[in-house]
Design a protein around this nucleic acid. Structure first.
Lengths: 245, 245
DNA sequence: GCGCTGGCTATTGTCGCCAATCGACACACC
DNA sequence: GGTGTGTCGATTGGCGACAATAGCCAGCGC
């Protein structure tokens, strides 16, 4: 009597499912940045008790996707220039660490996975579909982070990624040319695979700082052309110069 | 008719107060690492509804202080060697970024605050009380992070700090000599105040990696002397070598 | 003696309802 | 017209009760 060919049912509390569905709705743009939402509205749409929805919303607030004014309401964050600066500087630090960790523990198997992810990115760049290029780009970076086998780093990276995705969807992000994307990413992967931790870390950090600064300058130009849009949400910080490296 | 001299009442929802009280209880060691707690037990002790306590516990789980097995119970995390590795590597990256950011935007006022925090640390090292030295040490690092004016960085640092504090309380942490502490910290502060972002970042990163590795080696020696203690909690990761720099 | 099954207990999950708070608006007074 | 006060509606905060789940233990069959 062998094993039956039945897929296991994955049990998941409703709270967790609600959190996941709401996170996806926010990150995908189905619920827009800056939008006000209420527990009542969401509980009716999801056919769940308000308390269950409330737990989910609190979780997402902790992830930086929502802000709550007690007794008043919830707002999906809308990222200001300062938020953008925070995200790309933090991402540069996290990804520097990831590149260093993977490079210092590189194995043929890890190198193969990295090379494969880079190949996917290169193929998408040749195809030219910007959405698929962006996905492959995220995929390569996620692979580096996953190869660290560092749970907290992966968690932190996930928070940064989802906020970055939200922002890209709700703004007029500039997309580097496919040629440039390949030129930027290949040396990072090569340094990691060659076990050059210091070089890999520096290249990775530089890549994100450079892209972040370009994007920020672009946003500033857009702001000059339009009335300032009110920014809900994340703690405001004064903009600082990027760290010299 | 001018302003009355009455201090404003700081309103804080009970949920937030409960979260803060529980966080303090965990970080201070009043609730021990590895301990199992239940919503019912905590709600009775705090004289609050279980639902309120539940919200608080979920928040703290998100901060990495607790883990939940659905329908079964909550456990205060007990940090394994792998967790320690994760914390100090992540801390090294975060503090590297902080040092770089402050150094690249240094002002006389910031330099004064940093120098003051270093002076406090030096004074405590002369006094020799290890608890006060540790507090002054944390205080200096927190000052650097706060001077970045980077909300997300401060939040991330706070998570690392509280988990580190928990671990220090629940383990036989080795404390560096006061002389060594001064030798390690002074060059970091000097580099930051001199606006040398690259040097400040490297020194800061190195400081945490070196201390972390020493501590980890110490833990490994302790583990060899005792039966393995079961580790609740945080995602397990394989130990990796520290990144070369 | 071992493995399986069922029942019980203890816990978290989810619900609906009452309580507390905030913001907007109307009204009264100066 | 401006300011202060009170009320109301909309929202979140907090509660206790019922539902769902997991783990443990006793009993039974082989």
């Amino acid at each position: 009597m062998g094993r039956l060919k039945i897929s296991p049912v994955v049990k998941m509390p409703i709270e967790v499912q609600a959190t996941t569905a709401l996170r996806n709705a926010i990150v995908s743009g189905a619920i827009r940045a800056g939008e006000r939402i209420t527990e009542i509205q969401i509980s009716q749409q999801m056919n769940l008790s308000r308390a269950t929805v409330r737990t989910a919303l609190h979780q997402l607030a902790k992830e930086g996707l929502l802000t709550l004014v007690p007794y008043t309401g919830w707002t999906v964050v809308s990222l200001s220039a300062e938020d953008v600066w925070e995200l790309y500087t933090l991402r540069s630090a996290v990804e520097r660490l990831a590149a260093q960790l993977v490079a210092s523990t590189i194995t043929p198997a890890k190198a193969a996975r990295l090379t494969e992810a880079l190949d996917v990115l290169i193929q998408e760049c040749k195809r030219g579909d910007t959405a698929r290029i962006a996905e492959a780009d995220f995929g390569l970076h996620k692979t580096i982070v996953l190869l660290t086998d560092h749970g907290r780093l992966g968690f932190q990276y996930g928070l940064i990624e989802q906020q970055t995705r939200m922002h890209i969807r709700s703004s007029y992000a500039i997309i580097p040319s496919p040629k440039r994307i390949i030129e930027d990413h290949r040396p990072i992967v090569e340094a990691i695979c060659a076990g050059k931790a210091d070089l890999a870390g520096r290249l990775s950090e530089q890549h994100h700082l450079a892209e972040g600064e370009k994007h920020l300058a672009h946003l500033k130009r857009l702001e000059k052309q339009e009335p300032a849009k009110t920014s809900a949400a994340a703690p405001r910080s004064a903009r600082k110069r990027a760290p010299a490296t």
